[in-house]
């Protein structure tokens, strides 16, 4: 049963929740103040979601909540019950990279790669809404994601290439 924010638990006490992550229901024992990024990483072993700023300022922890790109370090895990959560680990299907991942690899979108999962998830949300974005639209959509390797030219090329791949019949 979905918990709501009204049910405040005392500090240190845990509650059972079920999160719907990458198409699967995962039962978890969590504390009320735990963030989604923490629970994904430590509770679900989905360490592709990175934590880098703890302030919602860098986008490294971006996941999709019902299709919308959100920073998981700014969301409470218990408030995501009943929502569809998508992480970087949910993109590859049957050993086949998602077209955005393929494009990232081909265009050298990752340098150190720490920001890549977040950028890729933001891109997925962007292309679902706008399948053929121009440069300004891409920059605006990615404006909340930091790449401190400054790899933005390659990243923008990767987004464009992904858009083309998807238009040609990718997912």
């Amino acid at each position: 049963m979905a918990k709501t924010t009204e049910n405040i638990l005392p500090s240190g006490e845990k509650e059972h929740v079920t999160l719907h992550v990458n198409g699967e229901d995962i039962s978890l024992l969590i504390e009320a103040h735990w963030t989604l990024s923490k629970v994904l990483r430590n509770g679900c072993s989905l360490t592709g979601t990175k934590e880098a700023c703890d302030a919602g300022a860098c986008g490294a922890c971006t996941v999709l909540i019902d299709g919308i790109a959100r920073p998981a370090c700014m969301l409470l895990a218990r408030e995501q019950v009943g929502k569809k959560i998508e992480t970087i680990e949910g993109l590859e299907k049957n050993g086949q990279l998602h077209p955005i991942q393929e494009a990232w690899l081909e265009e050298y979108g990752a340098q150190c790669g720490f920001c890549s999962p977040g950028f890729i998830m933001t891109t997925k949300a962007l292309l679902a809404k706008n399948p053929n974005p121009n440069d300004d639209e891409i920059k605006e959509a990615l404006g909340g994601n930091l790449c401190l390797c400054d790899n933005y030219e390659h990243i923008i090329l990767a987004v464009k290439s992904a858009a083309k791949k998807i238009a040609k019949g990718g997912k």
Partner: peptide, 22 residues
Amino acid sequence: DVIQKDGRARVTGEAKFYADYQ
């Protein structure tokens, strides 16, 4: 422009940075 040698893991989230070792 060959593909980044350890690039696939970087785009799938499988790349293990130190904090990812559980």
